[in-house]
């Protein structure tokens, strides 16, 4: 029985161990990493990374992907900056951002479901469209934004210290965890990711499931967009550039299969925390920040390799039957 239990240790468990080791290591070697200011700044980054990564996780679970998220967030940032300049308050900014996110993500989903364009190709194309339309619409940047606009970044602190973005992130994560456990829709997401053909034979409307998943993810990207976009008084056309890679990395690091159909939100929660702390950890360790991307890449490669090796081993050791008697 002991042997069986060992086999059932999840990806999440290994990630948690890895995270704990890294955190202890940083406590010893990185002076200042655990200062209140730095922790709060990491929590802010963590918030927008995790909120988007949850959306990305759902998309990847259906067996699709979205590489346009960075550009999508850039669009969201500029739209809210434009209305923020006119004095719009936070609730208006948030709702606008979510609606814009949903619309743009629905645009992606339209090409994927209705026109049957592979997700990677469709979203690669829309990346260019989103980014391209920004440079057409805006000359450089929108600046001198009022204090109502930057409220989230500078004023909204719980107990005067914890960023409100983190509270939003916690609320969204809890809802997502419950949704993925207790909604019928979540089962459809997994079923589609496992096999679109079997899902169709089971009576699941595959296109509708994928479309709705993108729309939900779009709303989450919008929320991230608000956090990213309201961080300062100037908003450029490239606020979100490259962020999609961090989101996808958090999802993959969290143990979600890029083939779709398997993976949990809990893994993404941990994966996102690891990725959100890397840049800051590197700074405090005194390593050049130029190494940040390199180290992110290495961590992802290693984690994917390790999990691949674990599955290979598992397949060899139980050829089919033994797994059932466990439990």
């Amino acid at each position: 029985m002991k042997h069986d239990r060992k086999k059932n240790l999840t990806t999440e468990f290994y990630l948690l161990v890895f995270l704990a080791v890294v955190l202890v290591f940083l406590g010893v070697f990185a002076k200042g990493f655990y200062s209140i200011n730095n922790i709060m700044s990491i929590l802010n980054v963590y918030s927008y990374v995790l909120i988007s990564a949850i959306g990305m996780n759902m998309i990847i679970l259906t067996g699709n992907i979205d590489v346009s998220t960075g550009a999508l967030i850039s669009v969201v940032c500029l739209v809210i900056a434009a209305i923020g300049k006119l004095g719009a308050t936070f609730p208006v900014l948030l709702i606008t951002a979510m609606v814009v996110g949903m619309l743009l993500s629905a645009f992606n989903a339209f090409f994927i479901t209705k026109l049957k364009i592979p997700a990677i190709v469709a979203t690669l194309a829309t990346t260019q469209i989103f980014q391209g339309s920004l440079t057409l619409a805006v000359e450089g940047s929108i600046y001198d934004l009022p204090a109502t606009y930057t409220w989230l970044a500078f004023k909204a602190k719980v107990f005067g210290i914890i960023p409100f973005s983190f509270v939003m992130c916690v609320i969204i994560t809890v809802i997502a965890l419950l949704f993925m456990k207790y909604s019928r829709f979540s089962k459809k997401i997994y079923a589609v990711g496992n096999s679109t053909e079997s899902a169709r034979l089971t009576g699941i409307n595959v296109n509708r499931t994928v479309f709705l998943t993108y729309v939900i993810a779009g709303a989450l990207f919008g929320v991230s967009g608000v956090i990213v976009g309201t961080a300062g008084q100037r908003v450029t056309t490239t606020m979100g550039s490259g962020l999609e890679m961090t989101f996808i990395a958090a999802v993959v690091l969290g143990g979600t299969s890029t083939a779709g159909g398997s993976g949990r939100i809990l893994g993404t929660v941990i994966g996102a925390l690891i990725l959100a702390s890397i840049s800051s950890a590197i700074t405090y360790l005194g390593i050049s920040t130029n190494w940040a991307d390199f180290i992110k890449g290495a961590i992802i490669l290693i984690s994917v390799l390790v999990s691949a090796l674990r599955t290979v081993k598992r397949k060899r050791s139980i050829p089919g039957k033994a797994g059932v008697q466990a439990s």
């Binding site: 096999s195 089971t202 009576g203």
Partner: peptide
């Protein structure tokens, strides 16, 4: 025609 990555319970009641 079961869904390989899902649990027994999920498969039995899917849809």
């Amino acid at each position: 025609s079961l869904f390989e990555e899902m649990t027994v319970l999920d498969n039995m009641f899917l849809a």
